[in-house]
Amino acid sequence: MASKQEQQFTEIQKKNLEAAMRLAQLSIENSQRIMELQVGTAKALFEEGVANAKALSSVKDPAEALTLRTAYAQSTTEKMLTCAREIAEITTKTQAEVGKMVTEQLSFGGQDVLEGFQKMFKGMPVGDASALGNIQTAMDSARAAYEQMTKASTDAFQAFTKFGKK
């Protein structure tokens, strides 16, 4: 029969595995969205390129050919920028979801780990009473650092998205 501490650590591992599975599912779903977007953009660009080539083959006037090429280049650039902007938006949303999941794990998982340490230390003669406080401080510092990195990278993605819309 497993001890209480083993059961607690098994429960923590189970929660971590569930979080990892949610993260993997999120990653797969967003990769699919990005691939569909890229395939759709590539298909549209190919079809437009074929239509442009047909139109250029029947043009006799150099000025008209230049106009067609300019319009095609502008359209291609707009489609590619739109695709890049949508990918950035998907990435920003995904990052926010991942950040939320990780923050939950750090908050709840960290609390579970801390409680496990507290119970474990109760049955042991610990020479330094501040050991548990040091563990809590380290977990709080890690959580704060992660939240700060998440905010900085989210701000960077939002700046990129705004830049692409100008």
Rank of each mutant, 00 (worst) to 15 (best):
T91E: 08
T92R: 12
T92L: 10
K93P: 08
Q95P: 04
A96R: 14
A96V: 11
A96S: 11
V98A: 13
V98Q: 11
V98T: 12
G99D: 04
K100Y: 13
K100C: 10
K100R: 15
M101D: 15
M101A: 13
E104P: 07
E104G: 14
Q105D: 03
S107D: 15
S107Y: 09
F108L: 11
G110W: 09
Q111A: 05
D112W: 05
D112I: 00
D112T: 01
D112K: 03
D112Q: 07
V113A: 05
L114A: 04
E115V: 01
E115R: 02
F117N: 06
F117D: 02
Q118S: 11
K119E: 07
M120N: 00
M120S: 06
F121S: 08
F121G: 07
K122W: 07
K122V: 08
G123D: 04
G123L: 01
M124V: 05
P125K: 08
P125R: 11
P125G: 14
V126P: 09
D128V: 08
A129K: 12
A129N: 08
L132T: 04
I135W: 00
I135L: 06
Q136W: 01
Q136Y: 02
T137N: 02
T137K: 04
A138E: 00
A138D: 03
D140A: 09
A142I: 01
A142L: 03
R143D: 11
R143F: 07
A144I: 00
A145P: 01
Y146A: 10
E147T: 05
E147H: 01
Q148D: 13
M149L: 12
M149S: 12
T150E: 08
T150Y: 05
K151F: 07
K151H: 11
A152Y: 07
A152N: 14
T154G: 11
D155F: 10
D155V: 08
D155T: 12
